[in-house]
Nucleic acid binder design. Structure first.
Lengths: 217, 217
DNA sequence: CGAAGCCTTGACCGTCATCAAACGGCGTGG
DNA sequence: CCACGCCGTTTGATGACGGTCAAGGCTTCG
């Protein structure tokens, strides 16, 4: 297993930055080796009992919620190295699915485990992500949202020049509260403005980072 | 940047739901007595150092973020008994303001936090609310969002028949990603459908809870 | 090589933002 | 106590953005 490379940002100052991977290391006995999932395969389901936490090894994951009328909302994407699926001893409020061929490591939790202090930084970061996403989708304009999404993905992948999108337009749409058509149109508009360039449908070069930031606010 | 990310998917997890108030009681030594704020008064500002957490005693609080162009987004409302002000990094990412005449108790945080486990339920509730709000504002229709908002407020106030709104239409609009006009029109539509009745502009009787739920999904 | 997805583009239309105006409550001051 | 003015709310008219429906191009995989 790869030693998780962790660089917790300044956000978690009050709570010590290191313990998340320490938890994982110290409890490696409860961890399972990487298991792989096919594209679209469910990792856990809504309403299912939550007893483990997960870490993306390769590929990507979407956490989503389905409405009665068939509409779907995606709450978050998770890229390699990132944790998701907290909520042990309770019931999952959302489901998680693999995007493309994906490897997942998992760690079992028990009711008596006192992980609170160790997990606090992770939970706080999760909260911060949720808040950022709130701000993103409250923005009015479709192009703004799309620009913000690209900016977010670039930051998370650590390359401000080239973004590799693992997910389909439909996933992006459900994440941004748009339709696939609108996402596509937004991409086209960004391309026409010279902000981005395509190298294949899911490989996007960011030509003008400054303009992207301007649009993302 | 490749910081590990954790997605919290369940409201309660391994952390018991009750001890939040107990924390406050047991650590009263670090707490400050209730201080009161006038309508619109700032409790803390964006960029300000975050050293305390807060609890609404009476009145209400809005947590908001201002964009460069003057647009404002409200991330959350907080009602009596609720905690806010986590984001608990060294610096506040958003500001908090009183809605109406409001009483706030606060609790100082130290670098050697032993409170993690005690505060975890409150943080998790914050996170669950943020996720719920994510789902809420991804809904397309203005009336759906407004109905969901009323439903949420009714649940939080513990009365499914009568909702007392402490905040102005403009606040609701910035919370739902709409305009004051759209919020007003949505209310009117709900009224015309017989779902709600007005007893004054900010006192709303829910005549048909089932229809409200149907709209809210 | 064919078929099935995925993505893009176009035309049309509904919803909501915008601009504008009128209404109502509430506090202040005459 | 009433008149006035301010502010929050409601209502109306208009237009733009994005959803919907439809068609066609592109990629991928059997």
């Amino acid at each position: 297993m790869n030693a998780p490379t962790v660089s917790m940002n300044a956000r978690t100052a009050i709570f010590p930055p290191e313990p998340v991977q320490a938890v994982f290391a110290s409890l490696a006995s409860r961890s399972r080796p990487t298991s792989s999932y096919a594209n679209g395969q469910e990792i856990y389901a809504e309403g299912q009992r939550a007893t483990r936490i997960y870490r993306v090894e390769f590929g990507a994951v979407r956490v989503c919620h389905s409405l009665a009328d068939g509409r779907r909302q995606i709450l978050s994407f998770h890229l390699p190295g990132e944790w998701f699926g907290f909520g042990a001893n309770s019931v999952h409020r959302f489901s998680a699915e693999a995007i493309g061929y994906t490897g997942i490591q998992s760690l079992g939790l028990t009711a008596t485990m006192d992980l609170s202090s160790s997990l606090m930084p992770a939970v706080l970061q999760c909260l911060a992500r949720a808040q950022d996403h709130q701000l993103l989708i409250t923005r009015q304009c479709a192009t703004e949202r799309t620009a913000a999404f690209l900016s977010e993905m670039a930051e998370r992948q650590g390359d401000r020049n080239l973004v590799q999108l693992p997910m389909a337009r439909a996933d992006i749409a459900d994440y941004l509260g748009l339709t696939t058509e609108s996402v596509s149109r937004s991409f086209t508009r960004l391309k026409d403005k010279g902000v981005i360039r395509f190298h294949g449908q899911r490989s996007i070069e960011i030509a003008r980072w400054d303009m992207l930031q301007l649009l993302s606010e």
